[in-house]
């Protein structure tokens, strides 16, 4: 048995379903959040109708004594549809504000209909308006949560991809490895880089390792510290470490910061580092054309 205040709402939704969908769309246009550049009219209409259909279904079946809990099992379908719509819109580049306004725009068509219906019963009208407000607000908040969740997943995935991309150890020649570092070198990445490098040294039995920092934008004391620790660990494993790609700018910075590289070999370009490495493992580069 539906609560008295939801019965009005249920009636409105049954009587004028398409009208509400159309007016909801209209409000979205007014608020400037319809994004017809991203969604066709038919798509928007289908999304709205689907949402409203599920909305009507839960109002009929999911209310307990005029109250509701969005986490209830009865609301699962609506949550799923909301999630789908939100994910779809996120992936097409809708902003959080637009997404929230999109949901909140449902209020106005419902309010105007309630007002028409309950013109002579102000108490019931206020009660229903409050209920609709709570319901729609809860949807909007839920949508926002999904939105943020979706964004976070994207960020996390990109972070992992970057982590993998950024630490490729390349075998340049027999027993010569190189690790081209690109971007920034924070503690987490330095750790990952070091473990990856040492493991590869063990697997390939490498004798010389070139740490190339051409792609590292800035070297501060912390980055230098990470590099020197990696070099020290490489040496402990029994391989030689050459740090290459030290630009004149970085050389100046390192001296000004008072960074002492100790016995670690440094070279300005990977080219000279490679020549050194090949000599160390007993090869020589010759021109074959005379």
């Amino acid at each position: 048995m539906p609560h008295s205040s939801t019965s009005n709402l249920v009636k409105i939704l049954e009587e004028d379903f398409t009208g509400i969908v159309e007016e909801w769309l209209g409000t979205q246009v007014e608020e400037g959040v319809k994004r017809s550049d991203l969604f066709s009219d038919a798509e928007s209409r289908a999304q709205n109708a689907e949402l409203l259909k599920n909305f009507a279904a839960v109002i009929r079946g999911g209310m307990v004594d005029g109250d509701f809990n969005l986490d209830d099992a009865a609301w699962e379908d609506l949550r799923a549809v909301l999630a789908d719509v939100t994910k779809e819109r996120v992936s097409r580049g809708v902003t959080p504000t637009e997404m929230a306004t999109f949901v909140l725009a449902l209020k106005s068509p419902l309010f105007s209909r309630l007002q028409d219906k309950l013109a002579d019963d102000p108490d019931a009208l206020i009660e229903d308006v409050m209920l609709v407000t709570r319901l729609v607000d809860a949807f909007a908040i839920h949508t926002n949560e999904i939105f943020i969740e979706e964004r976070e997943q994207i960020i996390e995935r990109q972070r992992e991809e970057m982590m993998e991309l950024s630490t490729p150890v390349v075998e340049l020649w027999d027993r010569v490895l190189t690790l081209p570092l690109i971007g920034t070198l924070d503690s987490a990445r330095a750790q990952e880089v070091m473990e990856n490098l040492l493991q590869t040294i063990l697997e390939r039995q490498a004798e010389v390792v070139i740490l190339d920092i051409t792609g590292v934008g800035t070297v501060d004391t912390q980055v230098a510290q990470h590099l020197l620790r990696a070099a020290a660990a490489v040496r402990l494993m029994g391989a030689d470490c050459i740090i290459s790609g030290i630009s004149p700018m970085i050389a100046q910075t390192m001296v000004q910061l008072g960074i002492d590289v100790g016995t670690v070999k440094t070279r300005s370009s990977i080219r000279t580092a490679l020549a050194d490495a090949l000599t160390a493992v007993g090869y020589r580069i010759e021109t074959v054309k005379d």
């Binding site: 070091m194 473990e195 040492l198 493991q199 040294i201 063990l202 620790r229 020290a232 660990a233 490489v234 040496r235 402990l236 494993m237 029994g238």
Partner: peptide
């Protein structure tokens, strides 16, 4: 010193023992 494992090398560096 030969045959140092990667994990051991990392630990020694972390302990500040560069040998």
């Amino acid at each position: 010193v030969v045959g140092m494992r990667p994990a051991v090398a990392v630990t020694l560096v972390e302990l500040g023992m560069y040998l």
